[in-house]
Amino acid sequence: MRFDPFREIEELTQRMDRAFGNGIAAQTARLAPPVDVHEDEGGLELTLDLPGVQPADIQIEAENQTLTVQAKRNYTRGEGRTAHRVERAYGTFSRTFSVPAKYDLTKVEAEFDHGTLTLRVPRSEAAQKRTVQVRTGGQLSAPKTVDAAQTTPATSDTPATETQNAEVSQGA
């Protein structure tokens, strides 16, 4: 088994918590669910694992280029039951993500399914790809895509420069 200093530190922290009686309270402070963040041309997608959390106990706030997710997982101990070990994290957590300005936080969508919260943050309109028309000879013409292998013969009526308009994409 390889030496993992982070695991050793975590185990030491857990032993200290148990020794000083901070069992459940200390685990509550460390409750931070794992998250996956993906990006594509449509925007960002954040996926958080929230097992045991009820949808009513999830709060999502989006403002000032930050996205905050808060959730609560309650611990219930039945009457007449003794807890010999409580390792799962309970309580409230808050996780904040900085979101670049090219994403529109006013259009965040959230979906909660089988303990997985998925947040979708679309790109803002200003950051969307768009087509720019190119003027040739002072005239605005419809954009066309020209294949580099394709040759267009010039006629006496139409100069070669006007038949080879190109589509220009401006990326975000």
Results as ranks from 00 to 15, higher is better:
residue 89 A to E: 06
residue 54 Q to S: 11
residue 23 G to H: 00
residue 31 L to I: 08
residue 24 I to P: 02
residue 124 S to Y: 11
residue 27 Q to T: 07
residue 61 E to A: 14
residue 48 L to F: 09
residue 80 G to Y: 05
residue 115 G to M: 07
residue 117 L to I: 10
residue 60 I to T: 09
residue 53 V to I: 15
residue 67 L to F: 06
residue 104 D to G: 02
residue 75 Y to N: 12
residue 113 D to I: 15
residue 29 A to R: 13
residue 20 F to Y: 14
residue 111 E to Y: 14
residue 32 A to W: 08
residue 108 V to L: 07
residue 103 Y to Q: 00
residue 32 A to D: 12
residue 122 P to W: 13
residue 89 A to Q: 10
residue 94 S to K: 09
residue 21 G to E: 01
residue 77 R to F: 05
residue 38 H to I: 06
residue 78 G to K: 06
residue 37 V to S: 04
residue 27 Q to K: 13
residue 63 E to G: 06
residue 41 E to F: 14
residue 60 I to V: 14
residue 123 R to Y: 15
residue 117 L to G: 08
residue 121 V to C: 02
residue 95 R to V: 07
residue 63 E to D: 08
residue 66 T to I: 02
residue 70 Q to K: 15
residue 39 E to Q: 13
residue 72 K to D: 06
residue 71 A to V: 12
residue 72 K to C: 08
residue 121 V to S: 00
residue 52 G to S: 14
residue 75 Y to P: 09
residue 97 F to S: 03
residue 93 F to I: 05
residue 103 Y to F: 12
residue 109 E to P: 00
residue 73 R to A: 07
residue 28 T to G: 04
residue 110 A to S: 15
residue 87 E to Q: 12
residue 122 P to S: 10
residue 57 D to A: 13
residue 51 P to H: 10
residue 81 R to E: 13
residue 69 V to A: 10
residue 93 F to E: 00
residue 45 E to S: 15
residue 78 G to M: 04
residue 23 G to K: 01
residue 96 T to L: 03
residue 80 G to L: 04
residue 95 R to C: 08
residue 45 E to T: 15
residue 73 R to E: 06
residue 25 A to V: 00
residue 22 N to E: 14
residue 122 P to G: 07
residue 61 E to R: 08
residue 31 L to S: 08
residue 62 A to M: 05
residue 80 G to N: 08
residue 104 D to C: 04
residue 31 L to C: 07
residue 95 R to D: 07
residue 28 T to E: 10
residue 109 E to R: 12
residue 69 V to L: 11
residue 30 R to Q: 04
residue 82 T to I: 12
residue 53 V to T: 13
residue 31 L to D: 09
residue 101 A to S: 05
residue 84 H to W: 11
residue 121 V to W: 01
